[in-house]
Protein backbone atom coordinates (compact mmCIF):
# COMPACT_ATOMS: atom_id res chain seq x y z
CA UNK A 1 0.00 0.00 0.00
CA UNK A 2 2.79 2.45 0.90
CA UNK A 3 4.39 1.66 -2.39
CA UNK A 4 1.22 2.65 -4.23
CA UNK A 5 1.11 6.00 -2.42
CA UNK A 6 4.76 6.66 -3.05
CA UNK A 7 4.30 5.96 -6.72
CA UNK A 8 1.19 8.14 -6.82
CA UNK A 9 2.97 11.04 -5.14
CA UNK A 10 5.93 10.75 -7.48
CA UNK A 11 3.55 10.79 -10.38
CA UNK A 12 1.16 13.53 -9.31
CA UNK A 13 3.12 15.82 -7.01
CA UNK A 14 3.07 18.77 -9.45
CA UNK A 15 -0.74 18.57 -9.47
CA UNK A 16 -0.87 18.30 -5.70
CA UNK A 17 1.49 21.24 -5.33
CA UNK A 18 -0.46 23.38 -7.79
CA UNK A 19 -3.76 22.53 -6.08
CA UNK A 20 -2.27 23.29 -2.66
CA UNK A 21 -1.04 26.65 -3.89
CA UNK A 22 -4.45 27.44 -5.36
CA UNK A 23 -6.10 26.31 -2.12
CA UNK A 24 -3.84 28.53 -0.10
CA UNK A 25 -4.48 31.58 -2.29
CA UNK A 26 -8.27 31.21 -2.03
CA UNK A 27 -8.14 30.77 1.75
CA UNK A 28 -5.67 33.57 2.20
CA UNK A 29 -7.68 35.98 0.05
CA UNK A 30 -10.90 35.31 1.99
CA UNK A 31 -9.25 35.65 5.38
CA UNK A 32 -7.40 38.80 4.35
CA UNK A 33 -10.67 40.34 3.20
CA UNK A 34 -12.32 39.17 6.41
CA UNK A 35 -9.64 40.87 8.52
CA UNK A 36 -9.84 44.04 6.45
CA UNK A 37 -13.56 44.32 7.07
CA UNK A 38 -14.15 42.70 10.47
CA UNK A 39 -11.30 44.31 12.45
CA UNK A 40 -12.27 47.93 11.71
CA UNK A 41 -15.95 47.13 12.23
CA UNK A 42 -15.12 45.43 15.54
CA UNK A 43 -13.06 48.43 16.64
CA UNK A 44 -15.84 50.77 15.66
CA UNK A 45 -18.43 48.73 17.55
CA UNK A 46 -16.28 48.57 20.68
CA UNK A 47 -16.07 52.36 20.74
CA UNK A 48 -19.75 52.82 19.99
CA UNK A 49 -22.43 52.55 22.61
CA UNK A 50 -25.60 52.25 20.53
CA UNK A 51 -27.27 48.96 21.36
CA UNK A 52 -29.22 48.52 18.14
CA UNK A 53 -26.08 48.88 16.01
CA UNK A 54 -24.41 46.08 17.96
CA UNK A 55 -27.31 43.71 17.56
CA UNK A 56 -27.68 44.62 13.89
CA UNK A 57 -24.04 43.96 13.01
CA UNK A 58 -23.70 40.82 15.09
CA UNK A 59 -27.06 39.61 13.81
CA UNK A 60 -25.96 39.88 10.19
CA UNK A 61 -22.59 38.26 10.89
CA UNK A 62 -24.34 35.47 12.76
CA UNK A 63 -26.72 34.98 9.89
CA UNK A 64 -23.89 34.46 7.40
CA UNK A 65 -22.44 31.89 9.75
CA UNK A 66 -25.62 29.85 9.84
CA UNK A 67 -26.21 29.54 6.10
CA UNK A 68 -25.12 26.04 5.08
CA UNK A 69 -21.90 26.41 3.13
CA UNK A 70 -23.05 24.36 0.18
CA UNK A 71 -26.22 26.43 -0.08
CA UNK A 72 -24.32 29.71 0.15
CA UNK A 73 -22.03 28.64 -2.68
CA UNK A 74 -25.05 27.67 -4.77
CA UNK A 75 -26.80 30.98 -4.04
CA UNK A 76 -23.75 32.92 -5.17
CA UNK A 77 -23.59 31.29 -8.60
CA UNK A 78 -26.37 33.41 -10.14
CA UNK A 79 -24.89 36.52 -8.53
CA UNK A 80 -21.18 36.10 -9.08
CA UNK A 81 -20.97 33.17 -11.50
CA UNK A 82 -18.59 30.30 -10.95
CA UNK A 83 -14.87 30.12 -10.20
CA UNK A 84 -12.64 31.51 -7.50
CA UNK A 85 -14.46 34.85 -7.11
CA UNK A 86 -17.75 33.59 -5.60
CA UNK A 87 -15.79 31.06 -3.52
CA UNK A 88 -13.61 33.77 -1.99
CA UNK A 89 -16.69 35.88 -1.36
CA UNK A 90 -18.54 33.06 0.42
CA UNK A 91 -15.56 32.15 2.58
CA UNK A 92 -15.01 35.84 3.35
CA UNK A 93 -18.57 36.02 4.71
CA UNK A 94 -17.85 33.05 6.95
CA UNK A 95 -14.66 34.56 8.28
CA UNK A 96 -16.41 37.74 9.42
CA UNK A 97 -18.07 36.60 12.62
CA UNK A 98 -15.17 35.05 14.56
CA UNK A 99 -12.80 37.88 13.70
CA UNK A 100 -15.44 40.48 14.49
CA UNK A 101 -16.31 38.86 17.79
CA UNK A 102 -12.71 38.55 18.89
CA UNK A 103 -11.79 42.06 17.86
CA UNK A 104 -14.78 43.38 19.77
CA UNK A 105 -13.96 41.25 22.80
CA UNK A 106 -10.32 42.32 22.65
CA UNK A 107 -11.17 46.00 22.66
CA UNK A 108 -13.75 45.47 25.39
CA UNK A 109 -11.13 43.69 27.47
CA UNK A 110 -8.93 46.78 27.73
CA UNK A 111 -9.08 47.95 31.33
CA UNK A 112 -11.15 51.18 31.42
CA UNK A 113 -8.75 52.64 34.00
CA UNK A 114 -5.88 52.18 31.53
CA UNK A 115 -7.86 54.16 28.98
CA UNK A 116 -8.80 56.79 31.54
CA UNK A 117 -5.16 57.21 32.48
CA UNK A 118 -4.21 57.46 28.80
CA UNK A 119 -6.86 60.08 28.17
CA UNK A 120 -5.96 62.04 31.28
CA UNK A 121 -2.28 62.03 30.32
CA UNK A 122 -3.08 63.61 26.99
CA UNK A 123 -3.02 60.78 24.47
CA UNK A 124 -5.20 61.74 21.52
CA UNK A 125 -7.88 59.35 20.32
CA UNK A 126 -5.63 58.02 17.55
CA UNK A 127 -2.74 57.56 19.94
CA UNK A 128 -4.98 55.70 22.37
CA UNK A 129 -6.16 53.44 19.58
CA UNK A 130 -2.75 52.68 18.12
CA UNK A 131 -0.57 52.72 21.23
CA UNK A 132 -2.90 51.31 23.85
CA UNK A 133 -6.05 49.61 22.61
CA UNK A 134 -4.76 47.83 19.55
CA UNK A 135 -1.65 46.32 21.17
CA UNK A 136 -3.71 45.13 24.13
CA UNK A 137 -6.47 43.68 21.94
CA UNK A 138 -4.00 42.09 19.56
CA UNK A 139 -3.85 38.62 21.19
CA UNK A 140 -7.65 38.42 21.00
CA UNK A 141 -7.72 39.48 17.36
CA UNK A 142 -4.99 36.99 16.52
CA UNK A 143 -6.79 34.12 18.18
CA UNK A 144 -9.86 34.99 16.11
CA UNK A 145 -7.75 35.00 12.97
CA UNK A 146 -6.17 31.65 13.86
CA UNK A 147 -9.52 30.03 14.50
CA UNK A 148 -10.90 31.39 11.25
CA UNK A 149 -7.86 30.34 9.25
CA UNK A 150 -8.08 26.73 10.32
CA UNK A 151 -11.68 26.26 9.36
CA UNK A 152 -11.56 28.41 6.22
CA UNK A 153 -8.70 26.23 4.91
CA UNK A 154 -10.82 23.17 5.55
CA UNK A 155 -13.95 24.71 4.01
CA UNK A 156 -12.09 25.87 0.94
CA UNK A 157 -12.26 22.24 -0.25
CA UNK A 158 -15.99 22.81 -0.83
CA UNK A 159 -15.22 25.67 -3.17
CA UNK A 160 -14.27 23.11 -5.78
CA UNK A 161 -17.98 22.48 -6.24
CA UNK A 162 -18.40 25.87 -7.93
CA UNK A 163 -15.24 25.46 -9.94
CA UNK A 164 -12.82 27.41 -7.77
CA UNK A 165 -10.14 24.71 -7.91
CA UNK A 166 -7.84 23.96 -5.01
CA UNK A 167 -7.41 20.71 -3.13
CA UNK A 168 -11.16 20.18 -3.18
CA UNK A 169 -10.90 19.75 -6.91
CA UNK A 170 -8.62 16.74 -6.44
CA UNK A 171 -10.94 15.24 -3.84
CA UNK A 172 -13.96 15.64 -6.09
CA UNK A 173 -12.08 14.02 -8.98
CA UNK A 174 -10.94 11.25 -6.64
CA UNK A 175 -14.56 10.53 -5.79
CA UNK A 176 -15.45 10.57 -9.49
CA UNK A 177 -12.82 8.06 -10.56
CA UNK A 178 -12.91 6.18 -7.26
CA UNK A 179 -9.23 6.77 -6.58
CA UNK A 180 -8.57 6.64 -2.83
CA UNK A 181 -4.98 7.79 -3.13
CA UNK A 182 -6.13 11.04 -4.66
CA UNK A 183 -8.74 11.70 -1.94
CA UNK A 184 -6.39 10.83 0.90
CA UNK A 185 -3.44 12.76 -0.48
CA UNK A 186 -5.45 15.93 -1.12
CA UNK A 187 -7.01 15.72 2.35
CA UNK A 188 -3.61 15.24 3.93
CA UNK A 189 -2.37 18.32 2.11
CA UNK A 190 -5.33 20.36 3.42
CA UNK A 191 -4.73 19.13 6.96
CA UNK A 192 -1.02 19.91 6.85
CA UNK A 193 -1.77 23.32 5.39
CA UNK A 194 -4.22 24.12 8.18
CA UNK A 195 -1.84 22.92 10.89
CA UNK A 196 1.08 24.86 9.45
CA UNK A 197 -0.99 28.02 9.12
CA UNK A 198 -2.14 27.67 12.72
CA UNK A 199 1.42 27.18 13.91
CA UNK A 200 2.69 30.13 11.92
CA UNK A 201 0.01 32.49 13.18
CA UNK A 202 0.58 31.25 16.71
CA UNK A 203 4.23 32.17 16.37
CA UNK A 204 3.30 35.60 15.03
CA UNK A 205 0.93 36.15 17.94
CA UNK A 206 3.60 35.08 20.44
CA UNK A 207 6.19 37.28 18.85
CA UNK A 208 4.08 40.40 19.16
CA UNK A 209 2.59 39.80 22.57
CA UNK A 210 5.73 38.13 23.90
CA UNK A 211 6.89 41.11 25.88
CA UNK A 212 3.70 41.52 27.85
CA UNK A 213 3.49 37.85 28.78
CA UNK A 214 6.97 36.54 29.31
CA UNK A 215 8.29 39.86 30.41
CA UNK A 216 9.98 38.38 33.43
CA UNK A 217 12.70 36.43 31.65
CA UNK A 218 12.98 39.20 29.14
CA UNK A 219 13.52 41.84 31.77
CA UNK A 220 16.00 39.86 33.81
CA UNK A 221 18.04 39.16 30.69
CA UNK A 222 18.11 42.85 29.85
CA UNK A 223 18.88 43.86 33.39
CA UNK A 224 21.87 41.55 33.50
CA UNK A 225 23.08 42.63 30.11
Amino acid sequence: MWAEYLEFWQDRYPDLLAATWEHLSISFASIALGILVAVPVGIYLAGNRSKWLHSAVFGVANLFQTIPSLALLAILIPLLGIGAKPAIFALFLYSLLPILRNTYAGFQSVDPSVLEAARGMGLSQTQRLLQIQFPLAFPYIMSGVRLTTVYIISWTTLAALIGAGGLGQLIVSGIGVNKTELIVSASLCAIVLALLADRLLGAVEKFFSRRARTAKTDASLLANG
Binding site: A117, G122, A219
Partner: peptide, 22 residues
Protein backbone atom coordinates in the same frame (compact mmCIF):
# COMPACT_ATOMS: atom_id res chain seq x y z
CA UNK B 1 -7.62 69.59 25.77
CA UNK B 2 -4.91 67.16 24.63
CA UNK B 3 -2.21 69.82 24.91
CA UNK B 4 -3.59 70.90 28.26
CA UNK B 5 -3.55 67.36 29.68
CA UNK B 6 0.09 66.86 28.70
CA UNK B 7 0.89 69.83 30.93
CA UNK B 8 -0.99 68.37 33.90
CA UNK B 9 0.02 65.21 35.75
CA UNK B 10 -2.75 62.71 36.36
CA UNK B 11 -2.82 59.84 38.85
CA UNK B 12 -5.91 57.65 39.22
CA UNK B 13 -7.14 55.25 41.85
CA UNK B 14 -6.79 52.15 39.69
CA UNK B 15 -3.24 53.15 38.74
CA UNK B 16 -3.83 52.53 35.03
CA UNK B 17 -0.30 51.61 34.04
CA UNK B 18 -0.09 50.37 30.46
CA UNK B 19 0.32 46.61 30.86
CA UNK B 20 2.11 46.09 27.55
CA UNK B 21 4.81 48.65 28.23
CA UNK B 22 7.67 48.19 30.66
Amino acid sequence: PVELRRRIGYVIQNIGLFPHMN
